[in-house]
């Protein structure tokens, strides 16, 4: 739903932060067939994703954040389904 004409008048970080346990939906932006680990890049924040498949790149996936290092803007997440 739209938030109206005066929504989101703000400056958004290049490195958004997430909390462990947080459930998010985002595009899977990469997959390494050698390690079987997927990547979800949100701005300049990078989450390593377990349980993803190569065919899911550029698809929306549901994730649960497991850990997050706000200083380096990196974390780990698992596929929820």
């Amino acid at each position: 739903m739209s938030r109206g004409l005066f929504g989101n008048w703000r400056f958004r970080s290049t490195r958004p932060a997430f909390a462990p346990g947080e459930e998010i939906r985002a595009y899977l932006t990469g997959f390494d067939p050698a390690t079987g680990v997927g990547t979800v890049r949100i701005g300049d924040t990078v989450l390593q994703v377990k349980g993803a498949a190569a065919g899911q790149v550029d698809q929306l996936v549901d994730l649960r954040v497991e850990s997050f290092d706000a200083g380096r803007a990196v974390g780990e997440a698992v596929l929820r389904r």
């Binding site: 703000r10 939906r25 985002a26 929306l60």
Partner: peptide, 20 residues
């Protein structure tokens, strides 16, 4: 450059984007 108005999919998914 500044991130003014920037929105990520984790902030809000556009209507029509959920099945992409």
């Amino acid at each position: 450059w500044t991130g003014f108005g920037r929105e990520y999919t984790t902030d809000r998914i556009s209507k029509g984007g959920s099945s992409a």
